[in-house]
Simulated assay, not measured.
Amino acid sequence: MKYIYLIVINAVAFLMYGIDKDKARKGKWRIKEKDLILVAVIGGSIGAFLGMHFFHHKTRHWYFRYGIPVIM
């Protein structure tokens, strides 16, 4: 059961970074940074890390660049 949770939460984290990047490009309301970090804290750190690099999103912010790997 915990493996299913980890797969789902990491997929959610990955998608959240992609959705936020898309919203940023379109100038729409964004996902809060605290929510992006929270999803990493509750088990989605690998998905968050992969999403950051796949979508090239939040990689300039030091608290994401160094914080997400620390959470992992």
Rank of each mutant, 00 (worst) to 15 (best):
D20G: 07
G18Q: 04
G44E: 00
I46H: 04
D20C: 00
G43W: 02
W29G: 11
R65Q: 09
N10F: 10
G51Q: 03
A40I: 07
D20W: 05
K32V: 14
S45C: 08
G67L: 05
N10I: 06
A11M: 15
F54Y: 11
H56R: 13
A24P: 13
Y5K: 05
Y3M: 13
V12Q: 00
R60V: 13
K34P: 11
F49T: 01
G67M: 03
L50S: 07
I31H: 14
F55K: 07
P69Y: 04
Y3G: 06
I4L: 15
K21M: 10
K2H: 07
R30Y: 01
I68D: 02
G51W: 01
Y17W: 14
K58C: 01
I7G: 05
K2F: 14
A40H: 04
M52T: 11
Y17F: 11
G67S: 03
I46G: 08
V8E: 15
I9C: 14
H53E: 13
M72I: 13
M72A: 13
M1N: 03
I7R: 01
A40T: 02
A13T: 06
W62S: 14
I7H: 02
W29T: 11
G44Q: 05
L15I: 09
R25P: 01
K28A: 12
L6G: 07
M1V: 01
H61D: 12
I42H: 09
G44V: 07
G67Y: 00
L50G: 08
Y66M: 08
A48Q: 01
F55Q: 03
A48V: 01
K58D: 04
L6K: 07
V70T: 12
I42M: 13
Y3H: 08
R30G: 03
G18H: 06
F14K: 09
K2C: 05
V8D: 15
A11V: 11
I42C: 04
L15T: 07
L38D: 07
V70F: 07
E33T: 12
F14C: 03
N10E: 06
R60G: 11
I19Q: 11
